[in-house]
Design a protein around this nucleic acid. Sequence first.
DNA 1: GGAGAGCTTATATTCGAAAATATTTCGGTG
DNA 2: CACCGAAATATTTTCGAATATAAGCTCTCC
Lengths: 239, 239
Amino acid sequence: MPLKKNIKRDSRAGGPTIATSVYDRLRADIIIGSLEPGHRLGTDQLRGRYDVGISPVREALNRLLAEKLVCFEDQKGFHVAGIGEEDLYDLIRMRCWAEEIALRESIAQSTPEWEESIIVAYHRLSRTPRSAQSEKFEFNPEWEVLHREFHTAFLANCGSPRLLAHCQLLADQSKRYRQLAASISYPTRTERDEHKTLMEMALSGDVEAAVEAHHAHLRMTLEIIIGSGLSLPTGKIAV
Amino acid sequence: MPLKKNIKRDSRAGGPTIATSVYDRLRADIIIGSLEPGHRLGTDQLRGRYDVGISPVREALNRLLAEKLVCFEDQKGFHVAGIGEEDLYDLIRMRCWAEEIALRESIAQSTPEWEESIIVAYHRLSRTPRSAQSEKFEFNPEWEVLHREFHTAFLANCGSPRLLAHCQLLADQSKRYRQLAASISYPTRTERDEHKTLMEMALSGDVEAAVEAHHAHLRMTLEIIIGSGLSLPTGKIAV
DNA sequence: GGAGAGCTTATATTCGAAAATATTTCGGTG
DNA sequence: CACCGAAATATTTTCGAATATAAGCTCTCC
């Protein structure tokens, strides 16, 4: 259950507003799945859940529209955006396009610093456990941060702030699917090996091999979920 | 000056909320430039400008974050996102990438309906005046709607809702630059000819020619603004 | 002269009640 | 039983005052 503390008690000077804190927690709850796709986000409900007033709740909800994790309709309020098979296809496809461009640009402008950042990111990621618990999959926030840094390292040299931002946004939108895939495939999938391959291919300078390895990695989420035969909840998709 | 009516007087049942109306007007004012890049968006100021309460103003501002037309900092409020030369380069480059993919996919899956939608959109656009006034450039909302429909027609067959949405978002983000370019180049630039070329190239089935014509068209905004020697206001860019 | 503390002013944020709107329930009629 | 309209209930949205925070200004001390 939600941890109901520290939002009101301490001074916020120089720190996040209540609205920003609610935003962070709402976002995390949607990504982890404790607020499920399609779920109504009623202001009274959230007020109770996060122990805050209506105004910060509404501010947070409006801000979450930017990430397409939330849908909104005038006078009908907000609900968690849906997920679905077709959307997953589209999202992975989109990620392959965007990240291919960024990867190609990054390799084309390869520098020693870029290469080193990938190696360091791989090293950090590989010494962190994928799951917070070993018997069953449990979201590990630390691994997630390092995982994002690892993947960002490949794209960071592309020279386009907007492209990089877009790749990040797509990665964020993939998180819900990735959590699902992780809980299905854990502990069978050896992501560490996949990450090593990505690094080696990128550092080899063989653009086509690097791109293909990258695509294969992104598609794994799709294959795991579709292969599981799991029926994804429908509900309105936000793109 | 802002038209201060019809927000409070009529029942809103089934229609847009006050917040949504403010959002629309704020957005339009930013794009047209009456709210300039870098401009502080104080809640008291906007309250007076749009004759509404603080809550709808804040709701609208939070929603505008999604389109990167507005920047926000906890406790420091909102301001209009900046524009700049480097950002313009990046944005055009990004648009070229994204729209190239969408155009290639659309041509690859060409259908008679797709072709017809382009022809109809061209016809509608070409019989509408670019400027609301002939002696000098004045924003013509009708032309803008048809212009967007024309460009969307080319990409709509790409089969990816997310890619199409992203192209739309990039086009929205380009609007400020496009208004600027239009006021510089009017009436010299003959956009109608450019649009005709785009149509012909796309319908010819020559993918490379169509893509190149498309890129050239997108780059015109960049060339007009850079060629004018105009110094773009700086200020924080939102990507 | 510069740095820091304290005070004042401006404005961002939050509060929670009131107003507006949507949804559900109930009763009447054909 | 089905449909419609009215009333009741639930929820969203807005209101505007109160509270919290940042920014600017002044004074004092080293």
